[in-house]
């Protein structure tokens, strides 16, 4: 049966779907270059909101704060989450294993408001001044479980005989981890770090609960600004964020694509060798000498 992939129905639904997804974002980008002070009325092209954004210290401080929180919390969450993943996948069966694993994954489904509120109560109870560190700790708490999920999904397929081989060849358990396990699972740890970093950048709810007077993250700043009325500066800021995220996503997909192509190339190379292999009489002879021209 020949299905017309470019029927009017398909084209219309495709257009509507993408319009629904991207017209708001496009509008936002377009209006960030608006000369007029009114957000919804086009008054000509200008980049003045970008320069005024960079001169707005409150925004810049919030951006810096967000980055700092993101880097620190992602790093700690990655370390803790990786350790948790190692325990879950490696420790075998022990009493309370399911409970333990469940407790690590629970924050994934916990409503953010609950997490934020409970952390606020904790910080108040122990009398910790709210600010940079409380936001960071809160972010570590909830992004750690995402890290654990990402890293443990890699560890499940990790061939443990690789570590045993390292031990067998003279490594201690500690150096086997750093010389063999860590380099092999590094890509998934990097991915987990990026995920934790993005989650931290993105978070409004938990940060609002955990922050104090001196510390405002970018999402919090944007939210409070918008409540006072839309400013074209916000459009400019959002556009910058969109560009940064797009660059990140595109880079990541290019890297993945390249890795796949490299892997395919390796496999082809290995297969070619197998073919050459077959036509040699003994496997301990050189391959190329023995092969008739034109392969097998």
């Amino acid at each position: 049966m020949n299905i017309n992939r470019f029927s009017w129905f398909n084209i219309t639904s495709l257009t509507l779907g993408f319009a629904f997804l991207y017209i708001p974002i496009l509008l936002l980008i377009v209006f960030s270059f608006n000369k007029s002070k009114l957000v919804t009325v086009w008054g000509g092209f200008s980049t003045k909101w970008y320069s005024s954004l960079f001169q707005n210290e409150a925004f810049m401080d919030a951006a810096l704060m967000t980055l700092k929180v993101g880097v620190v919390s992602a790093t700690f969450a990655t370390i803790l989450g990786t350790l948790a993943a190692l325990v879950i996948t490696r420790a075998g069966f022990f009493r309370g294993r399911t409970l333990f694993a469940g407790m690590i994954y629970a924050p994934l489904v916990m409503p953010e408001v609950i997490t934020g509120l409970s952390l606020l109560l904790l910080f108040v109870a122990i009398g910790w001044d709210r600010g940079f560190w409380t936001i960071t700790v809160a972010h570590i708490t909830f992004s750690m479980c995402y890290v654990a999920v990402v890293v443990s999904s890699r560890l499940v397929t990790f061939d443990e005989s690789l570590e045993e081989a390292a031990l067998d060849l003279g490594c201690t358990k500690f150096s086997a981890f750093f010389q063999v396990t860590l380099p092999i699972i590094a890509p998934s740890i990097a991915a987990a770090w990026l995920l934790a970093f993005t989650l931290s950048l993105d978070d409004l709810v938990i940060a609002s609960f955990a922050s104090g007077p001196g510390a405002t993250t970018l999402p919090m700043k944007i939210y409070s600004q918008v409540r006072l009325g839309l400013k074209p500066e916000i459009n400019a800021l959002s556009t910058i964020l969109i560009v940064i995220v797009s660059i990140g996503v595109i880079t990541a997909s290019i890297v993945t694509k390249r890795a796949t192509m490299k892997k395919r190339f390796y496999e082809q190379q290995a297969n070619a060798q197998t073919a050459l292999h077959r036509c040699s009489n003994s496997i301990f002879k050189r391959y190329y000498n023995n092969c008739p021209k034109g392969g097998t």
Binding site: D159, D168, I184
Partner: peptide
């Protein structure tokens, strides 16, 4: 004696070659 201190080496079924 732990495996790293034994004068014994092993060739694994999966070969366990370090891919990196």
């Amino acid at each position: 004696i732990p495996p790293n201190k034994r004068p014994i080496n092993m060739m694994f079924q999966s070969y366990a070659l370090f891919p990196h």
